[in-house]
Design a protein around this nucleic acid. Structure first.
Length: 918
DNA sequence: CCACTCACG
DNA sequence: GACGTACGTGAGTGGC
């Protein structure tokens, strides 16, 4: 019976997983209080595995009770292990229940550890010619890796092969036990030889071949202490080896043949998941069931034809095909994520679903530049980069061929740096954002799964992760082809799926007039960057460093002991336990809250608290800004280039990363000085223009608040006017404190006000805050109607809309949990306001370059966007002239699509640096 | 990897 | 009456 021989055996290390899942996942409990986080992690992992694997034999293996044969060899084995945490103990048996619910064999044997059973089954199977995958990241199992046996780390989702074992232990798998015997293991209380760790052990084993030879020849060791230890503790090393060496001949009670994979019993599994209250898993399991049925019902999956393009003739054939179809999916592969520094490695193209190619351009030989590898492989055959780009340039710029990409802004920038313009474009990520903003993410893997039911090859599967990650230019061409061509293929398929939805959901205008044109504008801004003066920043860093050190010393003195002031945990214990300041536990994890809201009131009476606040402020400025920004200066351009995310914020705002240039300090004088380091090139000026009160103006517009609209038309001080209405103080007698409260109320309106939030913000009682809000609603009667209708509309449709038709989906709006629902309701009120403001500035940004060019100011460059502000760099003699051009575009950006009854106003400044320009 | 804190609009 | 909250972000640090 050939059936009895496993093709692929999966051995899942249940015991190790329980511990890792328990510590890695946040605590969670069933409604009866039973902790369930490890069970949840385990069930989720199993669901992943059975969905992905082709294994025909599967077993989950657990440790039996503590004592086993190793304790006879060495009584202290695992002697220092503390008992399992209380929250974990009840989960052991639940995990066995889970295993059975998944209809998997659940194995354990008294007197042996799970690892021994795994070793035994693995060796039995591999002897029969099976492939074996051990699902575990336990290093003690790495000795088993060999031809036919690999490991899979279920937390990191990475494979552990021969190379990863060498990485970890410095020796191949078959010598791992020798290294472990020397180095010992404190967590298992394996003694090893004193003074020898993994590194030294590996070196010794490499030098002497194996443990026995080493111990025989220990006398030759040069280092006296090491030599003595090895001689004296030779027996300990041998015992250690017996402890770590896995038993491969356990007289297993369940024969291998019985591990044959059994089909899932859907009802039984669902019953278990319901019992455990794993809502997300239930949903996932049910949709997977449905998707599976759907895909089985659908036509056979399309065949794929992925080609490697290594000569000009093949490339020309692809270009011809693009002209014929009029559509070309494009994706670039590079050496990194920084679009200003990464080098082009290859380009993938697709002209019809299932058909794609990869054009390697910058691949080097495998292991090239790697000292350990002898005989570097030659770089593979490739079309010279300049030749390929020359061939591609016409089609990429041809107006009759639509270029489709996923997050094309990145590729535009990479290709732009190589003088390869790309136009016209469609971007599947942006299409998804327009159609499904707020409903889910917009990454390609997620979209492929959602719209195509396709699982993609992950970047990490090709390049690894962490410090072992390699750059794409070192990936062998066969792997590169499979990964890269798939990306282009999927992009084209997504385009087919999403383009009709733009139309059906009436999102075409939003996409065509805002998101699509903005991609190129942002690519240009990112590439332009802004000049930052490292000298100014370094001087500030040095000043901060000294003052931080002084403050720290004083804080330690005041506290009567040294501690880490930057640790909220330690700080809380010092302030509230040791010094007895009042301020209860506040954070959900049980610690003291020490944020500025708590510390500021205490600072008045307690000098140490003020010092802590000063310390915090300076540390923040130093680590996040003055130190970090210097590192972000691009060595070639000497400028700082941020990256904008177009899908980062649900409301339609941009977000900025690497570095974030949208949160440069301004609120304190000290922080504001950082803006002095943002400067114009010699002979140039920076111009800053920002919308004044745009969100409040939009509230007046959208909620149709006559009094507020009139106030804006009359150019009044809007917060003072609010204060006068709400508190009944005549404008002439307005004091700053009353105005401040009114300002907070105005912000509160924008945020979806609550009495609690307002009270917290302005330091009054909740009843008082409630009173203020009621008075506001009386004076501006439209606001309540707007809020109620917005929330109601969202409940019915599941989304809210901006003035320009952008939809923001809010899943929690019908949640039965009042807290989550309240949160969604406030989002529903805020999103149309924040989102409309985002639409307006985006519309302005798209028009500004054209307006400047028309005014003969094409040497004025747009550099940054900070939500309601735009920063430009201009030749000094052009700055004054540019301001009215830009201002006109910004103030008129809502038109002609929308005519606002509230004027938009823009304030402008010109200076040598950002602080003075703003 | 998460919680906390804090910078911005 | 009880939930326990102001909206939207990204980055650095400490600690499990």
């Amino acid at each position: 019976m050939t059936d009895a021989v496993p093709r692929h055996l999966y051995l899942i290390d249940g015991s190790a997983y329980i511990f890792r899942a328990f510590f890695a996942l946040p605590p969670m409990t069933r409604s009866d209080g039973t902790p369930t986080n490890a069970v949840m992690g385990f069930s989720s992992m199993i669901l992943n595995l059975i969905e992905q694997t082709d294994a025909d034999y599967v077993a989950v293996i657990f440790d039996a009770k503590r004592e086993n044969f190793r304790n006879e060899i060495y009584p202290d084995y695992k002697g220092h292990r503390p008992d399992a945490p209380e929250e974990l103990r009840p989960q052991f048996s639940l995990i066995r229940d889970a295993t059975e619910a998944f209809n998997l064999p659940c194995l354990e044997m008294e007197g042996y550890e799970a690892d021994d059973l795994i070793a035994t089954y693995a060796k039995q199977a591999v002897a029969k010619g099976s492939k074996v995958t051990i699902v575990s990241s336990d290093k003690d199992l790495m000795q088993l890796v060999q031809d036919g046996i690999e490991m899979w780390d279920p937390m990191k989702n990475t494979a552990i092969h021969h190379d990863q074992v060498v990485e970890k232990f410095g020796v191949p798998p078959e010598k791992v036990v020798d290294v472990q015997a020397l180095a010992g293991d404190s967590t298992d209380n394996v003694p090893g030889v004193p003074g020898i760790g993994i590194k030294t052990a590996a070196q010794l084993i490499v030098d002497y071949g194996d443990l026995d030879t080493l111990l025989e020849r220990a006398g030759e060791i040069k280092q006296p202490k090491r030599r003595e230890n090895l001689i004296e503790h030779a027996e300990l090393a041998r015992i250690s080896r017996e402890l770590v060496r896995l038993k491969q001949d356990v007289p297993v009670e369940v024969p291998l043949e019985e591990l044959k994979r059994r089909p899932l019993d859907n009802d039984r599994l669902l019953e278990f998941l319901k019992l455990m209250e794993f809502k997300r898993l239930i949903a996932r399991f049910q949709t997977e069931e449905a998707a599976q049925e759907a895909s089985e019902a659908a036509a056979a999956p399309a065949e794929t034809d992925y080609q490697l393009v290594q000569d000009e003739a093949a490339l020309k054939a692809w270009i011809d095909a693009a002209y014929k179809t009029g559509i070309l999916a494009v994706d670039t592969e590079t050496t990194g994520l920084d679009a200003m520094q990464a080098d082009l490695v290859g380009i993938c193209l697709s002209t019809e679903p299932g058909k794609a190619c990869y054009i390697p351009l910058g691949h080097v030989g495998e292991g090239e530049g790697d000292l350990l590898s002898s005989g570097d492989a030659e770089a593979p055959k490739q079309i010279p980069m300049a030749t390929a780009l020359d061939l591609l340039r016409p089609v990429l710029a041809d107006p009759s061929v639509l270029k489709v990409g996923q997050n094309l802004k990145y590729d535009l920038q990479i290709l732009g740096r190589l003088d390869v313009p790309v136009t016209p474009i469609d971007d599947t990520m942006l299409m998804s954002f327009c159609v499904d903003g707020g409903a889910h993410g917009h990454g390609m893997d997620e979209l492929a799964d959602l719209h195509l039911g396709m699982k993609t090859i992950k970047f990490e599967e090709v390049c690894g992760k962490g410090k072992n990650q390699i750059t794409f230019d070192k990936v062998p061409l066969d792997k590169a082809l499979a990964y890269a061509a798939e990306d282009a293929d999927i992009t084209l398929r997504l385009h087919r799926a999403l383009k009709p939805r733009l139309l059906a959901d009436r999102m075409t205008t939003l996409y065509e007039t805002i998101e699509r044109p903005l991609a190129q504008i942002l690519a240009d801004m990112e590439r332009a960057g802004i000049k930052v003066d490292p000298k100014t920043l370094k001087e500030m860093s040095a000043d901060f460093a000294k003052r931080i050190a002084d403050l720290e010393a004083e804080i330690h003195k005041d506290a009567g002991q040294e501690f880490n002031v930057a640790s909220p945990k330690q700080l809380g214990e010092i302030l509230f336990d040791k010094l007895g300041l009042k301020g209860g536990k506040k954070t959900k994890s049980g610690g003291y809250s020490t944020d500025s809201g708590v510390l500021e009131p205490l600072a008045l009476d307690n000098p140490i608290v003020q010092k802590v606040l000063d310390f915090r402020g300076l540390s923040k400025l130093k680590s996040t800004y003055t130190d970090a920004l210097v590192e972000d200066i691009n060595p070639q351009t000497k400028r700082v280039h941020t990256s904008y995310s177009m899908v980062g914020a649900q409301t339609g705002r941009l977000s900025s990363t690497d570095p974030n240039l949208q949160n440069i300090p301004i609120r304190t004088a000290e922080g504001r000085r950082i803006r002095e380091a943002f400067i114009a090139e010699p002979g140039c000026k920076l111009i800053s223009l920002d919308y004044s009160q745009i969100e409040l103006r939009l509230v007046a517009e959208i909620a149709d608040l006559d009094a507020l609209k009139q106030a804006f038309q009359d150019g009044l001080d809007i917060h003072a006017m609010t204060a006068s209405e709400v508190f009944g103080v005549p404008l002439k007698e307005m004091d700053s404190e009353t105005r401040r409260k009114a300002k907070a109320i105005n912000f509160g309106i924008i945020y979806g006000i609550s009495a609690f939030g307002l009270a917290n913000q302005i330091g009054v009682s909740r009843t008082e805050a409630k009173d203020f809000i009621d008075r506001y609603f009386e004076r501006f009667p439209g606001i309540r109607k707007f809020m109620d209708e917005t929330v109601e509309g969202c409940r019915e449709k599941g989304y809210v809309e901006t003035l320009f038709g952008r939809r923001i989906h809010l899943g929690g709006i019908n949640d039965k949990n009042p807290m989550r629902r309240g949160y969604a309701e406030r989002q529903a009120i805020n999103a149309p306001i924040q989102g409309t403001a985002a639409d307006i500035i985006k519309r302005a940004m798209i028009r500004i370059p054209g307006a400047l060019a028309e005014a003969g100011l094409d040497d004025v460059t747009m550099l940054l966007q900070v939500h309601d502000e735009l920063i430009f760099e201009a030749p000094a003699d052009k700055a004054e002239k540019a301001v009215p051009v830009i201002r006109d575009v910004m103030e008129g950006a809502a038109g002609p699509a929308r005519t606002l009854s509230v004027p938009l106003e823009v304030e402008a400044g010109i200076a040598d640096n950002w602080r003075e320009a703003h």
